[in-house]
């Protein structure tokens, strides 16, 4: 593991564990809170949760790897989610995704070497009226054409260099 994890975050995690410990089925809410705190679920955090809830680490790891939302590696500064729902697919989402791959030089699920973007495909975001749609962090861009992509990416590149 590269970066050292902030001990303050573990204190916050401890409080989450205390809060949920007596709930029925506490594991998922605790893991979701932990991911909100750390941004991902490194093995140290999984181990901490396992001990706190008194369950085997293998079970925590099993859950972490089953659900696509749990991340075992940190994301880039900006996460690009390309909607791959049916409505977006028939209106050209694949071409948008291909263009993103080309512009960023990475495959789906990967992060750019400079750590600026993570590219992921996602299930229907439910704004089918705006298809095709991508989401960058919490902002949605709709009715896209592949040629819109460079301009959108530039916005985030400029924001970083500013």
């Amino acid at each position: 593991m590269g970066k050292k994890l902030d001990p303050k975050l573990f204190e916050a995690l401890e409080q989450v564990i205390v809060r949920y410990k007596d709930h029925k089925g506490p594991l998922m809410p605790v893991m979701q809170a932990a991911q909100d705190l750390f941004g991902y679920l490194p093995i140290e955090v999984q181990d901490y949760i396992a001990r706190g809830l008194d369950i085997p680490l293998v079970k925590v790891y099993g859950v972490a790897t089953f659900y696509s939302q749990f991340k075992l590696e940190p994301n880039g500064e900006n996460t690009i989610s390309v909607c791959l729902g049916t409505a977006c697919y028939v209106r050209g989402a694949q071409k948008v995704l291909d263009r993103l791959k080309e512009e960023l030089g990475i495959e789906e699920g990967k992060t750019t070497p400079d750590g600026l973007f993570t590219l992921s495909g996602t299930r229907c975001l439910g704004c089918c009226g705006l298809a095709p749609v991508i989401m960058i962090n919490d902002d949605v861009y709709g009715r896209l054409k592949p040629d819109d992509i460079p301009g959108i990416l530039d916005k985030y590149r400029r924001a970083r260099s500013a």
Binding site: G25, M28, P29, F66, Y67, S68, Q69, F70
Partner: peptide, 8 residues
């Protein structure tokens, strides 16, 4: 309230 985590 319980939240899913991205599994169809």
């Amino acid at each position: 309230l319980r939240l899913g985590a991205g599994a169809f």
